[in-house]
């Protein structure tokens, strides 16, 4: 039975993890590779690294990071943040990344999805979508929710799939940071609409939220950052709980 995936997300700046991280027995909480390895041992199914470095050196930094992760980790990982072109992606693929996540660049120039899917295969392209519920509908937003676009969520994810996205990483800006649960209704509708897997992000606060996102929300994977980083929910105990709820997970 295909397992539901649990995915910790790490924010990276200048090659170091940012946001507070309080993970058991970690010598250097700032090293993304070490943190990733800890999560891998703890039973994470996959990792997402989002680079928020703003300097012009970012392409090289990101490639170096991808290579370092690929060398040391034996589970799949996605790398994203500011990816704009085929060249950006080529470097990351060569460095050993399993998937790349594109967000703003895909909204600004949707053909990028086609180009990446053609060049590297659908399974390599994760389209990340940040959305907010505004005026009775979900709209795609950019820059962490600050810029509203004209794209309606369900139209946009449909277009992304048509163009060759291999997965959708959906973040509800309304739920992100609330720890009150995922946007299950929107997730379930997307899951029914699309034939590609959906990674749910935004709103995880406890174990029950993951059970809900996999049942009511019909998500294929659940992503979270702070609850894992601060040890509020351990991946092992989360999987034990989900398994008890009859949800297929890969045992730790």
């Amino acid at each position: 039975m295909l397992a539901k995936r649990i995915i910790p997300c790490l924010d990276i700046k200048d090659g170091r993890t940012v946001k507070g991280v309080n993970f058991v027995n970690l010598r250097d909480a700032g090293d993304p590779v070490e943190l990733g390895a800890k999560y891998s041992l703890a039973g994470a199914d996959e990792l997402v690294f989002l680079d928020i470095t703003a300097t012009h050196e970012r392409r090289k930094t990101l490639a170096d990071l991808a290579r370092d992760i690929a060398r040391h980790l034996n589970i799949p990982f996605t790398i994203g943040g500011g990816i704009k072109s085929l060249t950006d992606v080529d470097v990351l693929l060569d460095a050993g990344a399993d998937k790349v996540s594109i967000n703003s660049a895909a909204v600004r120039r949707p053909e990028l999805i086609d180009e990446l899917a053609y060049a590297f295969g659908n399974q390599f392209v994760v389209v990340a979508v940040d959305a907010k519920f505004v005026d009775g509908d979900w709209y795609v937003h950019l820059n962490g929710g600050r810029i509203k676009t004209a794209h309606k969520l369900y139209d946009w994810v449909g277009e992304a799939q048509e163009r060759g996205a291999g997965e959708i990483l959906f973040t509800s800006m309304d739920h992100d940071g609330t720890k009150a649960g995922f946007a299950n209704a929107a997730l379930a509708r997307m899951s029914d609409q699309l034939s590609i897997p959906i990674i749910a992000s935004g709103g995880a606060g406890n174990k029950e939220h993951f059970a809900e996102v996999f049942t009511t929300g019909k998500a294929d994977a659940g992503l979270a950052a702070s609850i894992f980083h601060f040890g509020e929910v351990g991946i092992g105990e989360l999987k034990t709980y989900l398994s008890g709820e009859g949800i297929a997970v890969r045992p730790v």
Binding site: M1, L2, A3, R5, D45, N122, Q123, G166, E167, D192, L194, S195, I196, P197, D220, A221, R250
Partner: peptide, 15 residues
């Protein structure tokens, strides 16, 4: 060929 709404590609951990 999906029979009960399975997603394709088959992506993730399976036994």
């Amino acid at each position: 060929r999906p029979v009960t709404g399975e997603k394709v590609p088959h992506m993730g951990w399976n036994d």
